[in-house]
């Protein structure tokens, strides 16, 4: 694994804070009805992404996830202004306003979505790895899912095939405790999700998903295994989301105390404490970072606000690669 240096900690702090504030801004503009549809926010889970990004090579490795997917593409290098614009439904968005909150993609930055059907992305992730193996490329796919998705058949079929074909893929369950309003305990007799991999003889294990260091260590090992021909790994990141499943979630299934307990091990706070303890930066330096984050979020909002709506043709032009596809006319 690459060493976790001062600059890594500082990057983690700034990245995770930006992701947190980016999501907070989305919540705010959602309430103002500028962003519509469903909105699933990542607050609390940032260490999973930060640790992963330290462990991979974003130039060749690939990320795919479900619908809690606004900040992963930003981590992979996508301009956050374009992600914000996508949520506004603007033509400058990552999918030209056709995808919305749940469907962010970036071919240029190896981010393969952004998928709205629980568990539907799991075979796709293995498929990316299949192609890399087929073409003898040196890439590894990181395939994310929530704790709800592991109850889908797609996970089990994919685990079996990924092991059978020895694909270079790392499956990562972000167990934030709740599949919408249903706790893990109410979805299966066995609550240690990582053990699902054992039935397929897949190297599997639990990880402290609130610590970017622990995540980076576990993902590094798994990526190295995949890249050297050792096949898939299944990691269960034990993490937590502070906000509801989506914006319409009243969260009656958990207590405020529970949320507060997790905030005590908040990944951003953890990283900030290390930075101050080890004197990687002063309180004043931190304030400069905080201001930079605030300004960038503002810039994203302004870009999204000022961007034009997509043209009518875009919803037709993007369906088929065939340019003269004869759609049925629908209006008189």
């Amino acid at each position: 694994m690459k060493k976790i240096t001062k600059s890594v900690y500082l990057k983690w702090y700034e990245d995770m804070l930006f992701w947190r504030k980016f999501e907070d801004k989305l919540a705010a503009v959602y309430i103002q009805q500028k962003v519509r549809g469903f909105l699933h926010l990542y607050n609390g889970q940032e260490a999973v992404l930060a640790g992963t990004l330290h462990a991979i090579d974003p130039k060749k490795d690939r990320l795919i996830t479900a619908y809690r997917n606004h900040v992963q593409p930003i981590g992979m290098g996508v301009d956050p202004k374009r992600v914000m614009a996508e949520l506004y439904g603007k033509g400058t968005g990552t999918s030209q306003g056709l995808g919305g909150s749940m469907h962010i993609f970036s071919k240029e930055h190896n981010f393969y979505g952004g998928h709205g059907i629980v568990g539907g992305q799991i075979p796709l992730g293995a498929g990316l790895a299949f192609a890399d193996k087929y073409f003898k490329r040196d890439s590894v796919t990181l395939c994310y899912m929530g704790d709800g998705a592991v109850r889908q058949g797609s996970l089990h079929e994919t685990f079996n095939l990924a092991m059978l074909w020895n694909l270079p893929v790392v499956f990562i369950c972000e167990n934030n405790g709740y599949a919408m309003g249903t706790s893990v305990a109410r979805t299966a007799k066995e609550q240690e999700i990582w053990k699902l991999g054992l039935g397929y003889d897949m190297p599997s294990g639990p990880v402290d998903g609130m610590s970017p260091v622990k995540v980076a260590e576990a993902v590094s090992e798994a990526v190295e295994r995949a890249r050297s021909g050792g096949g898939p790994t299944f990691l269960e990141m034990k993490t937590y989301r502070y906000r509801g499943h989506s914006m319409s979630d009243a969260q009656h299934y958990r207590t405020k105390d529970e949320v507060e307990e997790y905030k005590k091990i908040d990944p951003i706070t953890q990283v900030k404490e290390v930075i101050l303890d080890k004197k990687y930066a002063s309180e004043d330096d931190i304030k400069v970072i905080d201001q930079r984050v605030k300004d960038l979020v503002k810039e994203c909002e302004q870009f999204a606000e000022e961007s034009p709506w997509p043209g009518d043709n875009v919803m037709y032009d993007t369906v088929y690669e065939q340019t003269d596809y004869p759609f049925l006319s629908h209006k008189l």
């Binding site: 075979p123 293995a126 797609s154 095939l161």
Partner: peptide, 18 residues
Amino acid sequence: PISELGFAGIAVGSAMIG
């Protein structure tokens, strides 16, 4: 194996990158 969901999805994923 008899896993239409799994292998159809893997094929779609592979079609995304070549």
